[in-house]
Every structure is written in structure tokens, then in C-alpha cells.
Nucleic acid binder design. Structure first.
Lengths: 233, 233
DNA sequence: ACCTGAACACCGTTCAAGT
DNA sequence: ACCTGAACACCGTTCAAGT
């Protein structure tokens, strides 16, 4: 009945590595290498330990568990996002750059897609980004809860766009599916809905990267238009 | 080098259960019970087998692997979505109802959040829903690729909103974290960003379910406004 | 302070064997 | 046609023991 205490990597001091042995940074860097090269499912404590020339269980000295290690890795990559200071650019440009920046980071590190929403984004890099977005929206004129809502709308759209995007291309890539056989499956599965099939055919006939870009730009423009309208009235 | 053939549960006939033994339906229903009661991570082939009074490995006669079993379960729940026929309602109402319907389904079955984007949504229920959305947007006036983009914008927003929503409350619920200790962590982690902390305080001070509802409604209205504007001009 | 190895309690899946 | 059990190759994590 008594509620458990919530704890977090971000409010606990890392154990201090004087000079010897492993450091938390080293571990996170090695984890990122595995994640980038082989994906989320490929990261195991044993494999990570081996890569560092240590036993798997040694890692537990530096990190409470795998979940917290992933929190550290998750935050790390948001450091790559370059966001224009909302002071100089207009809020709409800031939102645009923010959304595209997030998307690029996720496409560069597809494994994050599997972590989004699973962990609190309260690491330093996540917070830095959140603060810049908040500042931009505040300058735009949003106040109080609407400041949150507006920011949530943008990030929700980005996450919801990019998660399936990543899943499709990384599944297709790592399993090397034949594109034509995928189309064939869709044709027969959706045989009852000819218009849906027609849409899928046109969609897949073009350069996939370009279509996805346009898809993203279209939706983002909708969200930003909606926000703008909420400011005017 | 030769690309692998893509296969799918949806285009393969289920092995026919004459009268005896397990059926695929039975397995999927039992899986859904475990998923609803205990969540995605709690579903294992062994546990599912035991629930059905069978060996874990018996399941592999009816289902190729766990992934395909999850595809079946994933599609099943979209059957609960009731969508107004776009013929009678206006497209904006259809979009609104569609988005809220999706959200409700996900909140009722939080485990789906972990599957979104991970599998092709080409089961019968998913397709039925997709077709209704497509029809609504077509009637609204969208044509060609914009029909896809408009639909993708709506679903992206819904998924991106609901995934973190589900993650937070289900993590908080199942681990029974003390709400005050979570606020405390945020306060110290975000100590450098007083405005961000202030936002979080206001956000968490209110009835969480109501705030999330408003958050969702706000963002959805933005997306729909944006779509509307793209129709007019 | 840091690391190790053995051990525990799990996984998904394959496959020869049974009925 | 359907199910079983043993087995394989893994997991994350704990903990007493080492240095």
C-alpha cells in the first residue's frame, strides 16, 4: 500500500571512478556503439561487458540496471540536436527546426524509437531541448497550460510520424525483404479495399525517402498552422 | 544478396482446427487476457501455453512465432473502434471521432502502445479503420498523396500523444510510485530551468486524466485546423 | 573501491518423437 | 493432424567472494 519512492539516474551521483577501471561514460559510449550498429534488441549486458573487456556483472557497479543505462544513452543523443535560439528566429521557424532536428536525430539512431515514451525525458540534453521549445512557444504568445499543450502537440506529431517510419525501413533493411513481395502481400491483404491498395501503390512507387520527407513536412505544417490560428483568435 | 520473401500472418491460411484441440482464436483470446491484465512484457509463450493447459511449444503449430501472435492480437483490438460513416458526418467530425476512438482503444489496452509502428497494420480491423479514414479525407477533398499525408498526420498525432501518456500512467500504476517523490525528482533534475519546473508543477497539480484529455483535444484541434486550411487554399 | 563467477529464474524456438 | 519434452542458445540480475 505504501507507495514506492521514485528514483532516477539523473538525481543520483555516479560512483566516482578515481582513475582506474571502467567509468560510466565509457560504458554509455560503448552501449551507443552497439545500439547504433546493431539496434536496441542487440544490446545485452553480457555483450556490452565483453566489448569493454569486463564481466557483464561488473557493469552493475556503475549503473543500477539496464533500464538506467538506456536512460543515459537516450539522453545522450539529444545532445546532437542543434536548435536555433528562439530569440533570433521567429517561433514558427523554431518549431520547424525543432521538429526536423528531432526527426534527424531519431533517423540517425533508429533504436531510440523503441524507447520513446518508455522513460522520463529528464536528462540534461532532453531538458535543454525542452526548455528551448518552451521558450519559443512562450515568445509566440502561449501561456500557462497552453504552453505545454503546444509543445506536446509538436513532439507528439514528430514521435508519431517517426516511430512507424523507422520501424518500416529498419525492418525492411535488416531483414532485407524483397520490396515487390511486400507490395504483393499488401495487395492481397487489402484486396477488399481497392482504393487503399491504389494509395499504397502510388506511395511505394516513388522514392521512399522523398515521400516520407514530404509526408512529414505536410503534417508538421498542419500542426504549426493550427498553433498559429490559436494565437490569432 | 537475394532479398528475402516477405510473409505475413494475414495472407497465410490458419491451419484448420477440425474439432479437436487448440484453435488460433482461442490462443489469441487467451493472449489478449494476459496482455490486458499484465501487460506486454508479461506475455510469454510458456505462460500462454500454461493458461491453455498446453505445452508452450504446442502453440507453434498454430502460429509461426510470437511476433505473428502479437500481430493477431494487435489487429483484434481495433475491432472495438466504432467510427461514424463519413457519409453522414462531416469530415472534421469523422477525423475527431477517429482520433478519439483510437485513443480510447489504446488507453483500454495500454500494451498496444509498445507495438505501434513495430508491425505492419494490415489485419482486417486495421484496414477497415484505415479505409474509413481515407474515405472521410477523400470526401473532404484531399486527393492523391495528400490523402495519405492527411491520414498520416492524424494517426501520427494520436500515436505520438498516447504512447507517452500510456507509458507514464502505466509505469506509475504498476510500480506504484509515490507522486510526490516523482515531483521531487523533476524539481531537482530540472533545477536549472525554473520555468520548466513551474510548468510541470502546474501540470501535475490538476486532475491528470482531465489535463491529458485537454492536451489531446488541443493538439488534435490544431491538426484538424491545419488540414482544413490546406483544403481552402 | 571495484570486479569476478557461479547461480537463479527466466526467455523464444527447434526438432525428433509420440498419438 | 496435433501435441509433447528435451534441448539450445540466450536473457537480466543477485550475491558472496576476491583484490
Amino acid at each position: 500500500m505504501t507507495a514506492k519512492q521514485f528514483t532516477s539516474v539523473w538525481t543520483r551521483e555516479p560512483r566516482q571512478g578515481k582513475t582506474q577501471g571502467l567509468t560510466r561514460d565509457q560504458i554509455v559510449r560503448a552501449a551507443l556503439e552497439i545500439l547504433d550498429a546493431e539496434g536496441l534488441d542487440a544490446l545485452s549486458m553480457r555483450k556490452l561487458g565483453a566489448k569493454l573487456g569486463a564481466g557483464a556483472t561488473s557493469l552493475y557497479w556503475h549503473v543500477a540496471n539496464k533500464e538506467e543505462l538506456l536512460e543515459l544513452a537516450f539522453d545522450e543523443i539529444w545532445g546532437e540536436m542543434s536548435i536555433p535560439d528562439p530569440g533570433s528566429a521567429g517561433w514558427r521557424d523554431t518549431g520547424w527546426a525543432f521538429a526536423h532536428g528531432m526527426r534527424k536525430v531519431i533517423l540517425r539512431h533508429p533504436w531510440v524509437a523503441g524507447l520513446i515514451g518508455r522513460m522520463p525525458a529528464i536528462g540534461p540534453n532532453s531538458l535543454r531541448a525542452a526548455e528551448l521549445l518552451r521558450k519559443g512557444l512562450h515568445q509566440a504568445g502561449f501561456r500557462g497550460l497552453e504552453e505545454d499543450y503546444a509543445g506536446a502537440a509538436i513532439t507528439a506529431f514528430v514521435f508519431g510520424s517517426v516511430i512507424p517510419e523507422v520501424a518500416w525501413f529498419s525492418a525492411a533493411a535488416e531483414k532485407e525483404y524483397d520490396a515487390e513481395s511486400m507490395r504483393e502481400i499488401i495487395r492481397t491483404a487489402a484486396a477488399d479495399y481497392p482504393e487503399l491498395v491504389a494509395r499504397a501503390e502510388e506511395y511505394t512507387a516513388r522514392d521512399p525517402a522523398a515521400v516520407r520527407e514530404m509526408n512529414f513536412a505536410f503534417g508538421l505544417a498542419c500542426v504549426l498552422d493550427g498553433l498559429e490560428r490559436r494565437l490569432v483568435t
